[in-house]
Each structure stands twice: as structure tokens, then as C-alpha cells.
Simulated assay, not measured.
Amino acid sequence: MGEERRKVLFISAPVGAGHVRAAQAVGAALRRLAPGVATEFANVFDFFSPRLGKAILAGYLKVLDVFPQAYGAAYGWGNSSRLALAGRAAVSGFLAGRMERYIAVSRPDVVVVSHATPAGLVAHLAARGRLAAPTVAVVTDFVVHRLWVYPELGMYCVAHEGLRDYLAAAGVPRERSAVTGIPVDGRFAAPLGKREARAALGLREDAPVVLIMGGGAGVLPMAEIVAGLEALARPLQLVAVAGRNEALRRRLTAEAGRLKFCTLEALGFVDNVDVLMAAADLLVSKPGGLTAAEALARGLPLLIFRPIPGQEDANTAFLTAHGAAVRVESAGELAALAGGMLAERAAGLEALSSAALDLGRPGAAEAVGRLILDRLVK
């Protein structure tokens, strides 16, 4: 099929690390499935002025940190307001010209989007006959926001069947959506035992491991969580991933020396989440779509700490309804629940792990990759 001459363009947004990681996972899967296919990655902020892009990202992170209720209100408004739909159309029209020029130079055979904003730009071009390449949308949460819905897009890849129902009700024919799961790195599909993973990380066999993750930006009160777990007065091995939040990593590193019962290793940005999750008994995290999908693939029970209103709430509702996670609202509640679960591998922990494995789709990236390859030969 002349794969060596084919190119797939991925367009995402660095608003949280998950959208970009999903695109990278699918790109890697494509290269495994069809080594002759070229992949290219673009950031939707490439179509903004650099100053505006930085300001938008900084403002988004600040709102999440200081006033998450405002984000939740905006999320709900976008799901119900006609004015929101008009606003997205205006934004798409304003930015689509820059994207069109980029695509004209890139000349992709398929365009894949993993965030709602580039999805809108691509749909704007497709609706006006200014984009000939087939399009694929990869939704990276367990919910579809209305601002993700564009009947002009060729195919949607979603986490579960309920999202296909939602898209069909919103005007996307069922034959143009597929349940693939949320794409995770291919390493999550490789079995890795707890003993082997702990040996690779230098962790002990004789104490439970709690993994604490706050996403790429490290937006989680990890010091508060660590203090709550230390107050249990039992030996725990804590591994905290602060992402790109260097100030948080330094604070946790300083805190580690003051702990009496727990050990604490504070990490920055890592590329071995698959090993960390294989080594852990329990994950404490926000319910970002990618992080949750990775935990499900490893069968790792998840304690969700104070989800932000919006897609985090929706992801939490899905995961808790299926028995793969538990929601907690305070460090004290978290510590008490974690302590009970970790006591002699309590049955509740095993039930969460089993439910997570049932939901997990470690081969999601390959499933999306095959759908993209189908479009390359049509």
C-alpha cells in the first residue's frame, strides 16, 4: 500500500500531559504495526502566538490550583450553553487558517486529534472542504464533553460503549465511532510482576508501596497526603511523582528526611510509569484519563483525591461505578482507607484490582493504530 510514503499527523494540546501522551502512544503503535508509516506531532499552541499560548496554559493551571470550582462551572456551561457552541465556532474560525497552512506544508494522509480544541479546528476545515485527509479523534477521558462533538470528523475512538451512545445522540453516526479504550504506552501491555518491578526500582518486598501522582504539572497536595499516611505509624514505601513541579519535588525530598515510619522517594518527570505502577499496591492520584487508563491496564487500585469539577468528576463517577476506584475528600479519610486496604492485602484491595483489570485496555493504542491504517488504504 506504499506505506513508506504515508504520513499521519497528530495534533494535540499540552493542557495536562495526557492528551500528548495518548498521541505519542498511538504514534509508537503505528510505527510497530507499519514501520514505513511516518508520524508527525504538532501542538495546537503552534497556531497561537507564543505569548498567547503561554498565557492560556499558565491561566489554566492557575485556575485549577486556586479556584477549581470556576473550571467546573465553565465545563458545565460549555456542556449546556448555545453561546459556548458559538464561541467554539468563532475560535475555530480564527485559528483554522494557521492550521490549514501547517497542514498544507505537512501534507498528511490522515490527521489525528487528541484534544477538543484541535478537533474543532480540523472539523472547521473539513466542513468547508479545506481538508481532504481522513480524520480521527481520540477522546482521552471516560466522558465526552459536548465541545468534543463534531459530526464532520471521520472517526471517534472512545473509552467505552456509553460514549458511542452519547455521540450517536449528538449526531455522530454509530459507524463513525469505535470502542478502543484510551491509548496508553505499549509497555503497559507487557506483563511485569510486582517483585521484578520493585527490584528494578530498588524497593523492598516487606512493606506496601503507595504511588502518589499529580499529573505532569504536579497538581496534588502531596505533602498533605504524605503526612496523613505517616500518621498511620506503619511502614509504608511512598513514591511521589511531582512531574514538572520542581518546587514540589524539592519540598518532598526535604520532608523525606523527617519521616519516622514511611520512606519517601520524590521524583520529577518520569518515563517509567509502567514500572512504578507494577510495583505499587495502591495509587493516589487525580483521575486524569491517561493516568486512570494506565492504572486500569496494570490492575492498580486507585484512590481519587478531591477530583476537580468537570471531566475529573465524570471520570471519577465512571471508575467508582465500576468498582475500580474509591473517591476521598481529605488526607485523613485517604489515610484511614489506605491503611485498612493495605492491611494484609485486604479483600477490598483485591476487588478493586480485579475490577481495574476488567476495565483495562492495554492494547488501546494498537486498536487506534489499526483504525488509522484502515484509513490509509481507503
Rank of each mutant, 00 (worst) to 15 (best):
residue 1 M to E: 08
residue 3 E to R: 13
residue 6 R to T: 09
residue 16 G to Y: 01
residue 20 V to I: 13
residue 30 L to V: 01
residue 43 N to L: 06
residue 45 F to T: 14
residue 46 D to R: 14
residue 47 F to V: 14
residue 47 F to Y: 13
residue 48 F to Y: 09
residue 61 L to D: 07
residue 65 D to I: 04
residue 67 F to L: 15
residue 71 Y to H: 11
residue 84 A to L: 10
residue 86 A to I: 07
residue 86 A to K: 13
residue 87 G to S: 06
residue 89 A to C: 05
residue 90 A to T: 15
residue 92 S to F: 08
residue 94 F to M: 14
residue 96 A to S: 15
residue 104 A to I: 05
residue 106 S to K: 14
residue 107 R to N: 06
residue 109 D to R: 03
residue 111 V to G: 07
residue 116 A to E: 10
residue 128 R to F: 10
residue 132 A to D: 10
residue 132 A to W: 11
residue 153 L to M: 00
residue 155 M to L: 15
residue 174 R to N: 03
residue 175 E to C: 02
residue 181 G to C: 03
residue 191 P to F: 11
residue 194 K to G: 12
residue 202 G to D: 07
residue 203 L to R: 06
residue 203 L to E: 01
residue 209 V to S: 08
residue 213 M to D: 05
residue 222 M to F: 10
residue 231 A to L: 11
residue 233 A to E: 05
residue 237 Q to P: 02
residue 241 V to C: 10
residue 244 R to L: 14
residue 259 L to P: 10
residue 260 K to N: 13
residue 262 C to Q: 09
residue 286 K to F: 12
residue 290 L to N: 01
residue 296 L to H: 14
residue 299 G to A: 00
residue 304 I to Q: 00
residue 307 P to Q: 02
residue 308 I to V: 11
residue 309 P to R: 08
residue 311 Q to F: 05
residue 314 A to K: 09
residue 315 N to H: 03
residue 337 L to G: 08
residue 344 E to S: 15
residue 354 S to Y: 01
residue 357 L to D: 05
residue 357 L to E: 08
residue 362 P to A: 12
residue 370 R to M: 12
residue 372 I to F: 00
